[in-house]
Structures are given as structure tokens and as C-alpha cells.
């Protein structure tokens, strides 16, 4: 069953067409990759899906228990509330705050108490706050950051910051997780660890994952389907082995004489 659907979305910045008629369906439980040379429009596609940009044409749908919700015009926070979380290409943690705070903040969107009961720590808020802490600490334990939870988030090593960003996205209770170059800047060993980690969280949190990635080893290793963008146009889609042998893809990556 499909969970997220982009219907021919196009993004124009003035005269520049960043993404043209990107058509994609994510099925529940899949890991799908999005690859392409630099400037191909991968992050723009992500931004359209998560509401950062409003597509100039086309629409995005989120499917949830037989509901089909048009999220084309929704704000990023509304989309996250529905269950689409994301990470960023250049890590965007809340720098001055602790690891634990970073994860706690991602719980805020599910908070029911209003600001006054939160301030007065009324029983209903206290209960929610306690659940929030427990959930966050549990989550940090699962991603292996529990020992570091009082550290400032920027003091973590790079690989762990990536992990924290994923943990933070997971704290919003997503159904779909969008990862923007999770292995960027990692050495081969770290990338392999990350690959296992992503496969692992998919199982445990019952996620559908859509990821942009440059490390071919990672993409080919865990993605079930791959989309290839070049100059905003989808030039190929299919299984990893199909993509590897696709002439257009080879052309886009290596050029042709």
C-alpha cells in the first residue's frame, strides 16, 4: 500500500526548473533511494515533499489508514505531525542544547497540555513530561547515545551527530523518514555501520525510508528501489541492479563522448 505519493511535482525558481515532473510513490515499509549528480534537484524534491517549498505544479499526498491527504500546501510542521520526518544534508541540530533536549524538543508536537498547565506543572502535564523523558531516554539508548545525553549536541563526533539527528526525527513518531545524505562525510567503516543502523531502525520502528545518498555502496546495499535525477528530470527508476546497468545513468554520472 502506498503511503506517500508525489504526483508530477515541478519546482521552478524564476526561469530555472530545479525539478521537473517528479513522480514517485513510496510503499509502506520500503527503503527507496534518490540519487543523482550534484545539483540534480534531489534536496529540492525533498523540500517539496516536506513542505519547505510549495511545488509550482503537481501535488503531494500522504496516505494514512485509507485517508488520502493532500499535503501540497501544508506547512512543514503540519506534515511532520502527520508522520513524515526528515533529517538535513548539513546537520541541523539545536547546537547550544544538550543531546537529551534535542530529542525532547521533537516530542513537543505531540504535547496536549497548554502552556499554563505546563508552566504550573499540573498533573496532566507532569504525566506527559514524564512519558516524554522516558521515551527520549529509551530512544537514545536504542541509538547508543544514552551515555552522552547531557553533552552539548555539537560536542559529539560527526557520526554521532548524524545518529542524533536521526534519533530526533524518530522522536516525532514518523511513519515515513526522509534522510538527506545520511552518510555524507563519513568514512567507509562509518557508512557501513550507518547502513546497518538504518536497516535496523526500519525494522524496529516500522518505517518507510526515502533517502538521498551519494555513497553508492550504501544505496545499492540497502535500497529496494532507486530513483535517479539529473538536471531535475527523472532519468531512471528501478532496482539497484537495473540502475547499475542503465545507460542513461552511466551517462549522467560519467559523461559521454
Amino acid at each position: 500500500m502506498s503511503i506517500l505519493r508525489a504526483d508530477n511535482i515541478t519546482m521552478r525558481f524564476g526561469g530555472l526548473v530545479a525539478v521537473s515532473k517528479f513522480d514517485m510513490t513510496l510503499n509502506e515499509g520500503e527503503i527507496v533511494g534518490l540519487i543523482g549528480p550534484n545539483g540534480a534537484g534531489k534536496t529540492t524534491a525533498f523540500n517539496m515533499i516536506t513542505g519547505v517549498y510549495k511545488p509550482t505544479e503537481g501535488s503531494v499526498f500522504f496516505q494514512d489508514d485509507k485517508r488520502d491527504i493532500d499535503i501540497t500546501q501544508s506547512r512543514p510542521d503540519e506534515i511532520t505531525k502527520l508522520g513524515v520526518a526528515r533529517t538535513f544534508q548539513n546537520i541541523r541540530l539545536f547546537k547550544e542544547l544538550s543531546v537529551l533536549d534535542n530529542v525532547l524538543i521533537a516530542n513537543h508536537l505531540r504535547l496536549k497540555s497548554d502552556v499554563f498547565s505546563a508552566m504550573l506543572t499540573l498533573p496532566n502535564y507532569r504525566k506527559e513530561e514524564k512519558a516524554m523523558y522516558e521515551k527520549s531516554i529509551h530512544l537514545l539508548e536504542e541509538v547508543g547515545l544514552k551515555e552522552l545525553m547531557y553533552e552539548k549536541s555539537t560536542s559529539l563526533p560527526y557520526g554521532k551527530q548524524r545518529r542524533l539527528e536521526i534519533a530526533r526525527a524518530l522522536a516525532t513518531n514518523p511513519k515515513v523518514l526522509l534522510l538527506d545524505e545520511p552518510a555524507a562525510g563519513m568514512n567507509p567503516k562509518e557508512s557501513l555501520e550507518l547502513m546497518d543502523f538504518i536497516a535496523d531502525i526500519r525494522e524496529r520502528f516500522k518505517l518507510t525510508i526515502f533517502m538521498i545518498e551519494h555513497h553508492m555502496q550504501v544505496v545499492m546495499g540497502i535500497c529496494e528501489r532507486i530513483f535517479v535525477l539529473d538536471h531535475g528530470i527523472t532519468i531512471a527508476q528501478g532496482t539497484p541492479s537495473e540502475i547499475q546497468n542503465n545507460e542513461k545513468v552511466i551517462e549522467a554520472y560519467l559523461g559521454v563522448d
Binding site: 516536506t50 512543514p76 510542521d77 511532520t80 538535513f88 541541523r92 541540530l93 547546537k95 542544547l97 513537543h108
Partner: peptide, 10 residues
């Protein structure tokens, strides 16, 4: 700290 990230966190 980061508006874009805050919004992405709902």
C-alpha cells in the same frame, strides 16, 4: 537555535 529544524520537528 534553528528555525528550519524546529519547524521540521513539528
Amino acid at each position: 537555535e534553528d528555525e528550519i529544524a524546529a519547524e521540521a520537528m513539528g
